[in-house]
Amino acid sequence: MKPDSRILTALALIAGLLFLSPALYSIFMSFQTVDAYYTGKFEFTFENYALAIGQYNFARYLLNSIIVAGLVTLIALTVSTLAAFAFARFRFPGGNLLFAAVVATLMIPSHISLIPNYLTLAKVGLLDTYAGLILPAISNGFAAFFLRQYIRGIPVALDEAAYMDGATPLKVLWRVIVPIARPAIFAMGLFIFISEWNSYIWPLVAVGEEELYTLQIGLARLYRVNPGEDVINWPLVMAASTITILPVLLGFVFVERHLVRGITMGAVK
């Protein structure tokens, strides 16, 4: 390595750390006692995490977030892969129109459905349920559009060979298409999981019961319970905030490349 490239690397590292310093400092602060924080000293403690997880119910919010984001990802990937396969491989009357209807959802701002979806779910008694949090989030055509583009790049000869062997369409999808499209499906899954994990306005609308709060709602409430900054327990809030970002933070280290590729593909297509 040339010396000047080593300097560049160090500079890049410093610039990166500086950029992330607000987030890094918030994690540091979460290990500090309140008294030490307000007197400008440092005292290491896990107390804030114990408090957040126990008394402030963040264990429950974490569980809710995992359940909701996990199920949304699973269901959305399943229905989107099925639809993408049909749009990529079958020509059928009305197919183009249906595909256009799917793609058009990319243009439709989700806020138009906020009030009607709230009313629909209220009518069928699904407010304050996991189903109420999950179902409206499936209504997004991006994954189907993205996967359809990807599947069209897979040679049809592979499908035909499988059909010759007597495979059903579902078997072709499962045995031929899905294994080849795995990187795209994986990238899409990450994308869906992260956006669902971070989603805020719909859980805010659909859930009033504290037991069903996701991390985002729990954190916003914890912060807002007492935003008078003289009395707010910042270290506690930062512990809660760290719990909220941790899964994505940890996962990010492993999947950054996939994620960047997925997002770039989505934008360039």
Binding site: I194, T244, V248
Partner: peptide
């Protein structure tokens, strides 16, 4: 640097 700069865009907006 790209990793560091990209991180906030996948981080919770509430946090």
């Amino acid at each position: 640097l790209r990793g560091a700069l990209f991180l906030p865009s996948v981080t919770s907006t509430v946090s």
